[in-house]
Design a protein around this nucleic acid. Structure first.
Lengths: 90, 90
DNA sequence: CCTTCTTGCTATCTTTTGTGTAGCGATTTA
DNA sequence: TAAATCGCTACACAAAAGATAGCAAGAAGG
């Protein structure tokens, strides 16, 4: 699936996740995704823009309508991942 | 998020997606994920097993209960991805 | 029992992708 | 007008993935 190919690249999911908090600048995203290199961040942002999931607004990068739809699908993973992480430590 | 780190590796999402069709052998997964190398497939299977998402059953690799839960979250992406792919070609 | 298949997987090599760090040119702020 | 901040590029190195060959173990068949 083409979507999984896109999302299965480093930081792709992370960037979308971060942007769900609202628009932010390149450097803000960089700070939040602590270990991402500018090279990769720039590449991911380009890909995600070409895929119509994010765009550049007045205050920085933000999710498009489509991107927000995708995040809605992604959101349940947050809670689930916490329960899953707890289960691992046993 | 640790989950995104795991799922954001090549073929991780793909393998889970394939295994939702039922248990299958190493070579069957390899055939379905056309371009995956045995090196990476083996590594992903190991990681996914250590994460409790898949396991080895009588007829090959299969989703665990936890893995099936994750797939439930993943399932909506199928239909959504099709609509999204159509939108891209315009 | 011995051969032949298929199994999961390892070894090795090449190519691709990502990291780390420095810094540039343009724009905003003081 | 100087300093800060912006998005981003350049470059060297490291890590991850791809491609292909083939091995050891078990099952299947004669």
């Amino acid at each position: 699936m083409a979507l999984f190919d896109l999302l299965g690249r480093s930081w792709a999911l992370g960037v979308i996740w971060q942007l769900s908090d609202g628009a932010m600048t390149f450097r803000q995203i960089q700070d939040r995704c602590e270990t991402v290199s500018p090279t990769v961040l720039n590449r991911r942002l380009k890909e995600l823009r070409e895929s119509g999931l994010i765009e550049r607004g007045a205050t920085g990068y933000q999710l498009t309508e489509t991107g927000a739809e995708l995040f809605d699908l992604l959101q349940p993973f947050g809670a689930w991942s916490q329960r899953w992480a707890k289960g691992l430590n046993r």
